[in-house]
């Protein structure tokens, strides 16, 4: 089982005029098979923390450890490609690729043969409730919920142990939200993945195994 932990993590955004402390000394150990919800007001540093977990950057101080290795020491591109998948509120799909191509894209990057990649992508798409007739559509022909499912399918196809979701239901109605949350829960519970969701939505937070409340760049306590 892979482990993901934050140790005394600090992160600052700097520009010419000011320095903003976005993450302010977080230490936490995430376990697989669980759904974590990170909640907090806007500007509390949730997304920044999530991005650090995703290995988009390294903490200004402290470290994020995956399998005991700090993200600052490992190949973060490889880490993102093979171990972490991020799902965004605005889906971040490639709008010139079809649903199937979007889902299979990380596999192409991994140099998996096209047929195999597409086979796996199809399986994941079907799993999240995308029908075969939608495979050849371009993302903007789908609803928000469907687009988010494609994003999840892309994350699943990667086979990442850690699924990070940044407001995955932010753009969705309650029914779609419930479906997405259900999918993410299943991933944690049935496939033993570690799912970390950053959200405002109380219903999403309720569905999580562990809720982490963030304020001024630090966890208050777990709920």
């Amino acid at each position: 089982m892979n482990s993901l932990s934050a140790k005394e993590v600090f992160y600052e955004y700097r520009n010419s005029f000011q320095t903003v402390k976005a993450v302010n000394g977080i230490s936490y150990n995430f376990e697989s098979g669980r759904v974590y919800a990170v909640v907090g007001v806007s500007g509390s540093g949730k997304t920044t923390f999530l991005s650090l977990l995703a290995g988009l950057d390294i903490p200004t101080e402290g470290k994020i450890e995956f399998d005991g290795n700090a993200t600052s020491d490992i190949d973060r591109d490889n880490y993102r490609l093979n171990h972490v998948s991020v799902i965004y509120q605005n889906f971040n799909l490639f709008y010139h690729l079809t649903v199937l191509e979007n889902a299979a894209y990380p596999l192409y990057v991994k140099k998996m043969p096209k047929a195999a990649a597409e086979e796996l992508a199809k399986e994941k798409l079907l799993k999240v409730g995308i029908t075969e007739s939608q495979f050849k559509r371009l993302p903007n022909m789908l609803s928000g919920g469907e687009q988010q499912r494609v994003a999840i399918a892309r994350a699943l196809a990667c086979g990442s142990e850690i699924i990070l979701a940044d407001e995955p239901t932010g753009n969705l109605d309650s029914k779609n939200s419930r479906n997405i949350v259900e999918i993410l829960k299943n991933l944690a519970h049935e496939e033993n993945r570690c799912v970390i969701i950053v959200t405002h939505d109380p219903s999403v937070a309720e569905a999580a195994d562990i809720v982490l409340k963030m304020e001024d760049g630090a966890f208050e306590d777990s709920i």
Partner: peptide
């Protein structure tokens, strides 16, 4: 950026 998020190298 999305490509980078997916894990593609620069």
């Amino acid at each position: 950026a999305t490509m980078r998020c997916i894990g593609m190298k620069k």
